[in-house]
Deep mutational scan, measured.
Amino acid sequence: LADDRTLLMAGVSHDLRTPLTRIRLATEMMSEQDGYLAESINKDIEECNAIIEQFIDYLR
């Protein structure tokens, strides 16, 4: 059971955070005209990261 939990934490961490990191990188490359959009996307990314952290904390 502990091994399954560790594997799940690693999978969640990698499989969800990697795309979020790519999205954040894309927002950094957006033009200044789209700053409001990038800010909104980054806020959503932070919310997703917080949910992931809560899930990982729960698994521990």
Results as ranks from 00 to 15, higher is better:
1 L>C: 12
1 L>H: 10
2 A>M: 03
3 D>P: 09
3 D>F: 09
3 D>I: 10
3 D>E: 05
4 D>H: 14
4 D>G: 09
4 D>K: 11
6 T>L: 13
6 T>V: 09
6 T>S: 15
6 T>A: 00
6 T>K: 00
7 L>K: 15
8 L>M: 00
8 L>W: 09
8 L>S: 02
8 L>F: 08
9 M>W: 11
9 M>D: 13
9 M>F: 03
9 M>T: 14
12 V>S: 00
12 V>M: 14
12 V>I: 00
12 V>F: 10
12 V>D: 06
12 V>Y: 03
13 S>D: 13
13 S>R: 11
13 S>W: 14
13 S>T: 04
13 S>G: 08
14 H>Q: 00
14 H>N: 01
14 H>K: 01
14 H>E: 01
15 D>V: 00
16 L>H: 15
16 L>Y: 03
17 R>T: 10
17 R>H: 10
18 T>E: 15
18 T>Q: 08
18 T>I: 11
18 T>W: 07
18 T>G: 12
19 P>K: 09
19 P>N: 00
20 L>C: 03
20 L>W: 14
21 T>N: 01
21 T>D: 10
22 R>N: 00
22 R>A: 04
22 R>D: 02
23 I>S: 00
23 I>R: 00
23 I>Q: 01
24 R>D: 00
25 L>E: 15
26 A>W: 01
26 A>H: 01
26 A>V: 08
27 T>D: 14
27 T>I: 13
27 T>S: 13
28 E>Y: 10
29 M>V: 08
29 M>E: 03
29 M>D: 04
30 M>C: 06
30 M>Y: 07
32 E>G: 07
32 E>T: 06
33 Q>K: 06
33 Q>H: 05
34 D>R: 15
35 G>S: 06
35 G>V: 06
35 G>F: 06
35 G>C: 06
36 Y>E: 09
37 L>T: 05
37 L>G: 11
37 L>K: 10
37 L>F: 15
38 A>G: 08
38 A>F: 03
38 A>E: 08
38 A>I: 05
39 E>H: 11
40 S>A: 09
40 S>V: 02
40 S>M: 14
40 S>E: 11
40 S>Q: 03
41 I>Q: 02
41 I>E: 15
42 N>E: 05
43 K>T: 11
44 D>Q: 01
45 I>V: 09
45 I>C: 00
45 I>P: 09
45 I>G: 07
46 E>W: 09
46 E>Y: 12
47 E>P: 02
48 C>M: 02
48 C>A: 03
49 N>P: 04
49 N>V: 15
50 A>K: 00
50 A>G: 07
50 A>E: 06
52 I>E: 07
52 I>W: 05
52 I>M: 12
52 I>Y: 06
52 I>F: 08
52 I>Q: 05
53 E>D: 13
53 E>G: 15
53 E>Q: 11
54 Q>I: 11
54 Q>H: 04
55 F>T: 02
56 I>Q: 08
56 I>H: 12
56 I>W: 05
57 D>F: 06
57 D>S: 03
57 D>T: 07
58 Y>A: 15
58 Y>E: 12
58 Y>N: 12
59 L>R: 15
